[in-house]
Amino acid sequence: MSVLDDIRAAIGDAFGDTALFFSEATLTRVVGGGGWTDDSAAPDEYPCKAMVDTYSDHLRAVADIPGTDVKLMIVGTSISVDPLKGDTVTVGGKSYAINRVETDPARAMWTCQASPVDG
């Protein structure tokens, strides 16, 4: 166990009552995730805690982030897999397709740029 594992556990404990900020969510991955899809395979679903936030106008302009994209944050200790580009996360009845994934070194929080999924 490394120091980063200790940090991840401590942050997970701090967000023990995630209901204050984070909602129940589901990450859906089609077999061959990471942008590849296989229509014949059943998707895998992973429960997690997530919240949807918006990007500032300044960051949208500097990083060329589309106006419809959102910042999707997933608590690292709430999910058993690493989010990948191409995964879909459903929060509060709305689904978002992950376009970009970032995390901290301890993987305590995943921050994803995501687009709304029509449907």
Results as ranks from 00 to 15, higher is better:
98 I>T: 08
47 P>T: 13
85 K>F: 06
67 G>C: 03
79 I>A: 04
7 I>Y: 06
94 K>I: 11
30 V>I: 10
101 V>G: 01
99 N>D: 11
82 D>I: 15
89 V>L: 00
39 D>T: 11
20 L>W: 04
39 D>Y: 05
31 V>P: 00
42 A>L: 09
40 S>K: 09
20 L>Y: 06
88 T>A: 04
68 T>C: 05
67 G>E: 09
54 T>G: 08
47 P>A: 12
101 V>R: 08
76 G>P: 01
82 D>H: 08
39 D>V: 11
108 A>E: 01
104 D>T: 15
26 T>H: 00
66 P>D: 09
63 A>C: 12
28 T>Y: 12
85 K>E: 14
76 G>T: 07
72 L>N: 00
102 E>D: 14
80 S>C: 03
13 D>F: 11
9 A>E: 09
13 D>A: 15
73 M>H: 00
34 G>S: 01
119 G>V: 11
6 D>F: 08
9 A>Q: 10
119 G>P: 03
70 V>E: 07
15 F>M: 15
57 D>P: 09
8 R>L: 04
88 T>L: 02
38 D>W: 07
9 A>G: 05
14 A>C: 13
81 V>I: 14
60 R>W: 01
68 T>V: 10
62 V>L: 06
117 V>E: 04
109 M>W: 01
58 H>R: 12
117 V>D: 01
100 R>T: 15
64 D>P: 00
44 D>C: 02
65 I>A: 00
25 A>V: 02
14 A>H: 15
84 L>Y: 01
49 K>Y: 14
65 I>G: 00
105 P>K: 13
99 N>G: 12
54 T>I: 09
